[in-house]
Computed example of a mutant assay.
Amino acid sequence: MSQDHDEALVRMVNQIAANLGPGREEADAAEGVCTHLEKFWARAMKRRIVACLDAPDGGLAPLARRGVERLAERQAD
């Protein structure tokens, strides 16, 4: 997959976090992001967004990053 595709995934997860974050506790919002990714994203998309955690400036918003980190933890189990 291309860097453009990764950037698109980052944009999408940032939008998800922006929509799920307001009015919720941070932990609940991060869980919501993770749950959304688990339910609606294809396996390949989840692998690519988790790989973006290793990028020095991956572009993930703080809440999006926390949601993706939870996803990575669950995939490691």
Rank of each mutant, 00 (worst) to 15 (best):
R48V: 09
A44G: 08
P56G: 11
A29W: 10
V50L: 03
A61W: 09
C34M: 14
A42I: 02
R24N: 08
E25L: 12
V68P: 14
R74P: 00
M45H: 14
D57G: 04
P22R: 14
A42S: 01
R74Y: 00
D77K: 13
T35S: 13
R74I: 01
R74L: 15
A55T: 14
L53T: 02
M12Y: 01
A30F: 08
A64F: 13
V10L: 09
A51M: 06
L20C: 07
A17D: 10
L9P: 06
A17N: 02
L53W: 00
L60T: 13
P22H: 06
R48C: 00
G58S: 09
N19C: 10
A61Y: 12
R70A: 11
N14S: 05
P22V: 02
C34W: 05
D6H: 09
V50E: 11
K46L: 04
L20D: 08
D54V: 05
H5P: 01
I16R: 07
H36I: 08
A64R: 13
R66L: 15
Q3H: 10
P62E: 11
R70Q: 12
A29T: 12
E25K: 01
N14H: 05
A72F: 07
W41L: 00
E69V: 14
R43F: 07
L53S: 09
G23I: 00
V50W: 05
P62K: 05
V50H: 00
G58R: 08
W41S: 09
T35L: 13
N19E: 14
H5L: 10
G21A: 08
G32F: 11
D57K: 08
A72I: 00
A55S: 02
E25Y: 00
L71V: 06
Q75D: 04
M45Q: 05
D54W: 03
V33F: 14
N19R: 15
A27W: 00
T35R: 10
C52H: 05
D28P: 01
P62W: 05
D77C: 05
V13E: 02
V10W: 05
I49A: 04
L60N: 14
G67M: 07
A76G: 11
H36D: 09
R66D: 11
H5Y: 10
L53P: 09
A8H: 01
E69R: 10
D54L: 03
N14F: 06
D57I: 03
Q75M: 15
E38N: 04
A18V: 07
E38K: 14
A29C: 04
R65F: 03
E25S: 12
M1K: 13
C34G: 07
A30Q: 04
V33G: 08
M1C: 09
V68Y: 11
G32C: 06
D57C: 07
A64S: 15
L60S: 13
V33M: 08
L9Q: 03
G21F: 04
F40D: 00
E69K: 12
R11W: 03
I16H: 00
